[in-house]
Simulated scan of single mutants.
Amino acid sequence: MTSPTVRVLYIDDEENNLQAFRAAFRRQYEIYTAPSAAEGLRIMQHIDIHVVLADQKMPNTTGVEFFKSIVKTHPDPIRILLTGYTDIEALADAINHGDIYRYIAKPWNDLELHNSIKNAYDSYVARANLNNKITELEKTNDELNRFIYSISHELRAPLVSVMGIINLVKMEGLYNSSGEYWSLIETCSNKLDYYIQKTLQYYKNTKDIPDHSEVDFYKLVNDLIELHTYSDKETKFNVDIKQNARFVGDAFRIEVILSNLISNAIKYQNSDEPHKTVNIQINVDEFEAKVNINDNGLGILKEHLEKIFTQFFKSKTHHGTGLGLFIVKEALNKMNGTINVSSNTEDGTTFKITIPNAK
Protein backbone atom coordinates (compact mmCIF):
# COMPACT_ATOMS: atom_id res chain seq x y z
CA MET A 1 0.00 0.00 0.00
CA THR A 2 1.27 3.47 -0.87
CA SER A 3 1.55 6.03 1.91
CA PRO A 4 -0.87 8.95 1.75
CA THR A 5 0.47 12.21 0.37
CA VAL A 6 0.91 14.63 3.25
CA ARG A 7 1.00 18.25 2.11
CA VAL A 8 3.09 20.46 4.39
CA LEU A 9 3.50 24.23 4.18
CA TYR A 10 6.40 25.94 5.94
CA ILE A 11 6.43 29.75 6.26
CA ASP A 12 9.68 31.50 7.22
CA ASP A 13 11.30 34.75 6.08
CA GLU A 14 14.78 33.13 6.13
CA GLU A 15 15.52 31.37 2.85
CA ASN A 16 18.20 29.16 4.46
CA ASN A 17 15.60 27.64 6.78
CA LEU A 18 13.22 27.02 3.88
CA GLN A 19 15.95 25.26 1.89
CA ALA A 20 16.99 23.15 4.89
CA PHE A 21 13.39 22.13 5.47
CA ARG A 22 12.88 21.13 1.83
CA ALA A 23 16.12 19.12 1.81
CA ALA A 24 15.29 17.28 5.04
CA PHE A 25 11.67 16.36 4.31
CA ARG A 26 11.09 16.39 0.55
CA ARG A 27 11.15 12.55 0.38
CA GLN A 28 8.55 12.07 3.14
CA TYR A 29 6.10 14.87 2.35
CA GLU A 30 4.82 17.08 -0.43
CA ILE A 31 6.55 20.29 0.62
CA TYR A 32 5.45 23.89 0.00
CA THR A 33 7.40 26.86 1.32
CA ALA A 34 6.67 30.58 1.56
CA PRO A 35 8.91 33.51 2.56
CA SER A 36 5.98 35.48 4.08
CA ALA A 37 2.58 35.03 5.65
CA ALA A 38 0.90 36.62 2.61
CA GLU A 39 2.56 34.13 0.26
CA GLY A 40 1.65 31.28 2.59
CA LEU A 41 -1.99 32.35 2.57
CA ARG A 42 -1.98 32.50 -1.23
CA ILE A 43 -0.71 28.90 -1.36
CA MET A 44 -3.39 27.75 1.09
CA GLN A 45 -6.09 29.31 -1.06
CA HIS A 46 -5.13 27.06 -3.97
CA ILE A 47 -3.80 23.90 -2.32
CA ASP A 48 -5.36 21.67 0.33
CA ILE A 49 -2.68 21.83 3.02
CA HIS A 50 -2.70 19.27 5.83
CA VAL A 51 -0.01 20.65 8.17
CA VAL A 52 1.22 24.25 8.28
CA LEU A 53 4.36 25.37 10.10
CA ALA A 54 5.21 29.03 10.68
CA ASP A 55 8.14 30.84 12.22
CA GLN A 56 7.14 33.13 15.07
CA LYS A 57 9.55 35.99 14.35
CA MET A 58 8.77 37.35 10.86
CA PRO A 59 8.99 41.03 9.85
CA ASN A 60 5.39 41.85 8.88
CA THR A 61 3.30 39.17 10.59
CA THR A 62 4.30 36.86 13.42
CA GLY A 63 3.51 33.18 13.31
CA VAL A 64 0.89 33.59 16.04
CA GLU A 65 -0.80 36.44 14.17
CA PHE A 66 -0.84 34.37 10.99
CA PHE A 67 -2.42 31.41 12.74
CA LYS A 68 -5.06 33.69 14.28
CA SER A 69 -5.89 35.08 10.85
CA ILE A 70 -6.61 31.65 9.30
CA VAL A 71 -8.61 30.06 12.12
CA LYS A 72 -11.96 30.82 10.45
CA THR A 73 -10.97 30.75 6.78
CA HIS A 74 -8.77 27.63 6.98
CA PRO A 75 -9.78 25.73 10.15
CA ASP A 76 -8.67 22.26 9.02
CA PRO A 77 -4.84 22.39 8.66
CA ILE A 78 -2.96 21.44 11.82
CA ARG A 79 -0.68 24.25 13.03
CA ILE A 80 2.87 23.99 14.37
CA LEU A 81 4.79 27.04 15.62
CA LEU A 82 8.58 27.28 15.25
CA THR A 83 10.60 29.88 17.10
CA GLY A 84 14.24 30.51 17.97
CA TYR A 85 13.47 32.22 21.26
CA THR A 86 11.16 31.58 24.16
CA ASP A 87 8.30 34.02 24.54
CA ILE A 88 5.83 32.65 27.10
CA GLU A 89 3.19 35.30 26.35
CA ALA A 90 3.38 34.60 22.63
CA LEU A 91 3.06 30.87 23.20
CA ALA A 92 0.08 31.32 25.54
CA ASP A 93 -1.56 33.64 23.01
CA ALA A 94 -0.91 31.14 20.24
CA ILE A 95 -2.49 28.27 22.16
CA ASN A 96 -5.50 30.32 23.25
CA HIS A 97 -6.30 31.99 19.93
CA GLY A 98 -4.38 30.28 17.14
CA ASP A 99 -5.29 26.66 17.77
CA ILE A 100 -1.65 25.57 17.91
CA TYR A 101 -1.04 21.84 17.86
CA ARG A 102 2.63 21.93 18.90
CA TYR A 103 5.55 24.27 19.61
CA ILE A 104 9.02 23.39 18.21
CA ALA A 105 12.22 25.24 19.20
CA LYS A 106 14.74 26.28 16.54
CA PRO A 107 17.11 24.97 15.43
CA TRP A 108 14.87 21.94 15.11
CA ASN A 109 15.78 18.31 15.46
CA ASP A 110 14.86 16.48 12.24
CA LEU A 111 13.50 13.41 14.02
CA GLU A 112 11.45 15.48 16.48
CA LEU A 113 10.03 17.63 13.70
CA HIS A 114 9.28 14.58 11.54
CA ASN A 115 7.38 12.91 14.39
CA SER A 116 5.51 16.16 15.08
CA ILE A 117 4.41 16.46 11.44
CA LYS A 118 3.39 12.78 11.35
CA ASN A 119 1.34 13.12 14.54
CA ALA A 120 -0.19 16.36 13.27
CA TYR A 121 -1.32 14.62 10.09
CA ASP A 122 -2.81 11.77 12.12
CA SER A 123 -4.73 14.42 14.07
CA TYR A 124 -5.86 16.00 10.77
CA VAL A 125 -7.17 12.64 9.51
CA ALA A 126 -8.91 11.87 12.81
CA ARG A 127 -10.59 15.28 12.82
CA ALA A 128 -11.67 14.90 9.18
CA ASN A 129 -13.12 11.43 9.90
CA LEU A 130 -14.97 12.81 12.92
CA ASN A 131 -16.45 15.65 10.85
CA ASN A 132 -17.54 13.15 8.20
CA LYS A 133 -19.20 10.98 10.85
CA ILE A 134 -20.97 14.02 12.30
CA THR A 135 -22.25 14.96 8.84
CA GLU A 136 -23.47 11.40 8.25
CA LEU A 137 -25.19 11.30 11.65
CA GLU A 138 -26.87 14.65 11.04
CA LYS A 139 -28.11 13.41 7.67
CA THR A 140 -29.34 10.14 9.19
CA ASN A 141 -31.01 11.99 12.05
CA ASP A 142 -32.74 14.35 9.65
CA GLU A 143 -33.97 11.44 7.54
CA LEU A 144 -35.19 9.65 10.68
CA ASN A 145 -37.05 12.76 11.84
CA ARG A 146 -38.72 13.13 8.45
CA PHE A 147 -39.67 9.45 8.54
CA ILE A 148 -41.18 9.81 12.04
CA TYR A 149 -43.09 12.91 10.96
CA SER A 150 -44.42 11.20 7.84
CA ILE A 151 -45.42 8.01 9.68
CA SER A 152 -47.12 9.99 12.44
CA HIS A 153 -49.22 11.85 9.89
CA GLU A 154 -50.06 8.61 8.11
CA LEU A 155 -51.14 7.03 11.40
CA ARG A 156 -53.24 10.01 12.40
CA ALA A 157 -55.43 9.93 9.30
CA PRO A 158 -57.12 6.55 10.00
CA LEU A 159 -57.08 7.28 13.74
CA VAL A 160 -59.13 10.44 13.24
CA SER A 161 -61.62 8.35 11.24
CA VAL A 162 -61.92 5.85 14.10
CA MET A 163 -62.48 8.65 16.63
CA GLY A 164 -65.09 10.16 14.30
CA ILE A 165 -66.93 6.84 14.14
CA ILE A 166 -66.91 6.65 17.95
CA ASN A 167 -68.49 10.10 18.12
CA LEU A 168 -71.19 9.01 15.65
CA VAL A 169 -71.89 5.94 17.80
CA LYS A 170 -72.30 8.23 20.82
CA MET A 171 -74.65 10.54 18.91
CA GLU A 172 -76.84 7.58 17.87
CA GLY A 173 -76.99 6.25 21.45
CA LEU A 174 -75.22 3.00 20.62
CA TYR A 175 -72.11 3.57 22.76
CA ASN A 176 -73.20 1.10 25.48
CA SER A 177 -74.94 -1.34 23.16
CA SER A 178 -71.96 -3.71 22.95
CA GLY A 179 -70.77 -3.81 26.52
CA GLU A 180 -67.36 -2.18 27.03
CA TYR A 181 -66.08 -2.67 23.47
CA TRP A 182 -66.70 0.90 22.30
CA SER A 183 -65.20 2.23 25.52
CA LEU A 184 -62.07 0.11 25.02
CA ILE A 185 -61.75 1.28 21.42
CA GLU A 186 -62.09 4.91 22.52
CA THR A 187 -59.51 4.51 25.31
CA CYS A 188 -56.99 2.87 22.99
CA SER A 189 -57.62 5.48 20.28
CA ASN A 190 -57.10 8.36 22.71
CA LYS A 191 -53.89 6.79 24.01
CA LEU A 192 -52.56 6.26 20.49
CA ASP A 193 -53.49 9.83 19.57
CA TYR A 194 -51.60 11.05 22.66
CA TYR A 195 -48.46 9.15 21.64
CA ILE A 196 -48.65 10.44 18.08
CA GLN A 197 -49.09 14.02 19.28
CA LYS A 198 -46.03 13.69 21.55
CA THR A 199 -44.02 12.26 18.66
CA LEU A 200 -45.00 15.17 16.41
CA GLN A 201 -44.15 17.65 19.17
CA TYR A 202 -40.74 16.02 19.57
CA TYR A 203 -40.10 16.20 15.83
CA LYS A 204 -41.14 19.83 15.49
CA ASN A 205 -39.18 20.82 18.59
CA THR A 206 -35.96 19.50 17.04
CA LYS A 207 -36.24 22.03 14.23
CA ASP A 208 -33.94 25.03 14.71
CA ILE A 209 -36.03 27.43 12.64
CA PRO A 210 -37.16 30.15 15.09
CA ASP A 211 -40.72 31.42 15.17
CA HIS A 212 -41.12 35.02 16.31
CA SER A 213 -44.77 35.89 16.56
CA GLU A 214 -46.97 37.76 19.00
CA VAL A 215 -48.29 35.66 21.87
CA ASP A 216 -51.55 36.36 23.71
CA PHE A 217 -51.26 34.38 26.93
CA TYR A 218 -54.92 35.00 27.86
CA LYS A 219 -56.20 33.29 24.73
CA LEU A 220 -53.53 30.61 24.63
CA VAL A 221 -54.03 29.43 28.21
CA ASN A 222 -57.84 29.48 27.98
CA ASP A 223 -57.76 27.52 24.71
CA LEU A 224 -55.44 24.90 26.24
CA ILE A 225 -57.57 24.55 29.38
CA GLU A 226 -60.68 24.07 27.23
CA LEU A 227 -58.84 21.46 25.15
CA HIS A 228 -57.47 19.45 28.06
CA THR A 229 -60.58 19.61 30.27
CA TYR A 230 -62.86 18.32 27.51
CA SER A 231 -62.71 14.83 29.04
CA ASP A 232 -61.99 15.97 32.62
CA LYS A 233 -64.59 18.10 34.36
CA GLU A 234 -63.41 17.49 37.93
CA THR A 235 -60.27 19.64 37.98
CA LYS A 236 -60.78 23.30 38.84
CA PHE A 237 -58.50 25.92 37.27
CA ASN A 238 -57.58 29.22 38.95
CA VAL A 239 -56.04 31.48 36.32
CA ASP A 240 -54.33 34.82 37.00
CA ILE A 241 -52.72 36.38 33.92
CA LYS A 242 -51.22 39.88 33.85
CA GLN A 243 -50.01 40.79 30.38
CA ASN A 244 -49.37 44.51 30.20
CA ALA A 245 -46.76 44.36 27.44
CA ARG A 246 -46.58 43.02 23.91
CA PHE A 247 -44.86 39.62 23.96
CA VAL A 248 -43.03 38.15 20.98
CA GLY A 249 -41.68 34.62 21.01
CA ASP A 250 -41.78 31.15 19.53
CA ALA A 251 -45.54 30.62 19.69
CA PHE A 252 -45.38 26.91 18.79
CA ARG A 253 -42.84 26.04 21.49
CA ILE A 254 -44.63 28.15 24.11
CA GLU A 255 -47.86 26.30 23.30
CA VAL A 256 -46.04 22.97 23.57
CA ILE A 257 -44.59 23.94 26.97
CA LEU A 258 -47.88 25.10 28.47
CA SER A 259 -49.83 22.23 26.91
CA ASN A 260 -47.54 19.61 28.45
CA LEU A 261 -47.54 21.22 31.89
CA ILE A 262 -51.33 21.70 31.95
CA SER A 263 -51.88 18.15 30.68
CA ASN A 264 -49.59 16.74 33.39
CA ALA A 265 -51.30 18.82 36.09
CA ILE A 266 -54.61 17.17 35.14
CA LYS A 267 -53.27 13.70 34.48
CA TYR A 268 -51.39 13.31 37.75
CA GLN A 269 -54.12 14.46 40.12
CA ASN A 270 -54.76 12.38 43.21
CA SER A 271 -57.90 10.31 42.65
CA ASP A 272 -58.78 10.61 46.35
CA GLU A 273 -58.56 14.42 46.34
CA PRO A 274 -62.11 15.89 46.49
CA HIS A 275 -60.98 19.34 45.30
CA LYS A 276 -58.62 18.81 42.38
CA THR A 277 -57.05 22.21 41.66
CA VAL A 278 -54.56 23.71 39.23
CA ASN A 279 -53.33 27.28 39.68
CA ILE A 280 -51.84 29.14 36.72
CA GLN A 281 -50.17 32.49 37.28
CA ILE A 282 -48.51 34.42 34.46
CA ASN A 283 -46.83 37.83 34.58
CA VAL A 284 -45.66 39.34 31.30
CA ASP A 285 -43.53 42.46 30.95
CA GLU A 286 -41.28 43.89 28.25
CA PHE A 287 -38.42 41.61 29.25
CA GLU A 288 -39.90 38.20 29.98
CA ALA A 289 -42.90 36.06 30.82
CA LYS A 290 -42.92 34.36 34.22
CA VAL A 291 -45.20 31.33 34.45
CA ASN A 292 -46.12 29.40 37.61
CA ILE A 293 -48.21 26.25 37.31
CA ASN A 294 -49.15 24.59 40.59
CA ASP A 295 -51.31 21.53 41.33
CA ASN A 296 -52.36 19.58 44.42
CA GLY A 297 -51.79 16.24 42.72
CA LEU A 298 -49.67 13.17 43.38
CA GLY A 299 -46.39 15.07 43.57
CA ILE A 300 -42.95 13.86 42.55
CA LEU A 301 -40.56 11.90 44.72
CA LYS A 302 -37.47 13.88 45.75
CA GLU A 303 -35.10 11.33 44.19
CA HIS A 304 -36.90 11.73 40.85
CA LEU A 305 -36.78 15.54 40.62
CA GLU A 306 -33.37 15.53 38.92
CA LYS A 307 -34.48 12.92 36.38
CA ILE A 308 -37.90 14.13 35.23
CA PHE A 309 -36.47 16.16 32.34
CA THR A 310 -34.53 13.15 31.06
CA GLN A 311 -35.69 11.60 27.82
CA PHE A 312 -37.96 8.55 28.35
CA PHE A 313 -37.81 8.76 32.16
CA LYS A 314 -40.93 7.28 33.77
CA SER A 315 -41.57 6.65 37.44
CA LYS A 316 -43.82 3.91 38.84
CA THR A 317 -46.55 6.41 39.72
CA HIS A 318 -46.31 8.57 36.57
CA HIS A 319 -47.20 6.78 33.35
CA GLY A 320 -46.67 8.29 29.92
CA THR A 321 -44.18 8.45 27.07
CA GLY A 322 -41.38 9.95 29.14
CA LEU A 323 -41.11 12.66 26.49
CA GLY A 324 -43.36 15.45 27.80
CA LEU A 325 -41.04 17.19 30.27
CA PHE A 326 -38.01 16.42 28.09
CA ILE A 327 -39.72 18.31 25.25
CA VAL A 328 -40.57 21.16 27.65
CA LYS A 329 -36.91 21.48 28.73
CA GLU A 330 -35.60 21.31 25.16
CA ALA A 331 -38.12 23.91 23.97
CA LEU A 332 -37.09 26.29 26.76
CA ASN A 333 -33.42 25.75 25.97
CA LYS A 334 -34.01 26.80 22.38
CA MET A 335 -35.65 30.02 23.61
CA ASN A 336 -33.03 30.67 26.34
CA GLY A 337 -35.73 30.09 28.94
CA THR A 338 -35.45 28.40 32.33
CA ILE A 339 -37.54 25.96 34.35
CA ASN A 340 -37.53 25.03 38.05
CA VAL A 341 -39.65 22.50 39.87
CA SER A 342 -40.54 21.93 43.50
CA SER A 343 -42.69 19.02 44.60
CA ASN A 344 -43.66 16.63 47.36
CA THR A 345 -46.28 13.93 47.72
CA GLU A 346 -48.33 15.96 50.24
CA ASP A 347 -48.69 19.36 48.54
CA GLY A 348 -48.33 18.58 44.82
CA THR A 349 -46.04 20.13 42.23
CA THR A 350 -45.07 23.65 41.18
CA PHE A 351 -43.30 24.47 37.91
CA LYS A 352 -41.76 27.93 37.49
CA ILE A 353 -40.61 28.96 34.05
CA THR A 354 -39.27 32.14 32.48
CA ILE A 355 -39.35 32.91 28.76
CA PRO A 356 -37.46 35.93 27.37
CA ASN A 357 -39.48 38.49 25.43
CA ALA A 358 -37.98 38.54 21.93
CA LYS A 359 -39.64 41.77 20.84
Results as ranks from 00 to 15, higher is better:
215 V>P: 07
260 N>Y: 03
123 S>C: 15
63 G>P: 03
14 E>Y: 12
129 N>V: 06
117 I>H: 07
55 D>Y: 03
293 I>F: 08
283 N>M: 04
106 K>R: 01
54 A>K: 06
281 Q>F: 08
293 I>V: 12
289 A>Y: 00
274 P>A: 04
151 I>T: 15
305 L>I: 05
260 N>G: 02
73 T>C: 06
266 I>F: 04
169 V>P: 04
207 K>T: 04
218 Y>P: 14
10 Y>P: 10
284 V>H: 02
232 D>I: 10
214 E>T: 13
1 M>L: 12
166 I>E: 07
6 V>L: 07
314 K>Q: 14
256 V>R: 02
185 I>L: 15
101 Y>L: 14
64 V>T: 11
260 N>R: 09
294 N>Y: 02
353 I>L: 13
12 D>P: 05
27 R>S: 15
355 I>R: 09
320 G>P: 07
272 D>S: 13
154 E>R: 11
5 T>G: 03
86 T>W: 13
315 S>Q: 10
41 L>N: 08
145 N>C: 01
277 T>D: 11
301 L>K: 15
130 L>P: 08
98 G>P: 06
351 F>A: 01
214 E>M: 06
101 Y>N: 12
73 T>G: 12
220 L>E: 11
320 G>M: 03
338 T>C: 10
237 F>T: 00
139 K>A: 12
243 Q>C: 05
162 V>C: 10
296 N>M: 15
308 I>K: 01
230 Y>T: 11
234 E>M: 10
296 N>H: 02
346 E>I: 14
132 N>Q: 14
244 N>L: 07
247 F>Y: 06
191 K>F: 15
5 T>I: 09
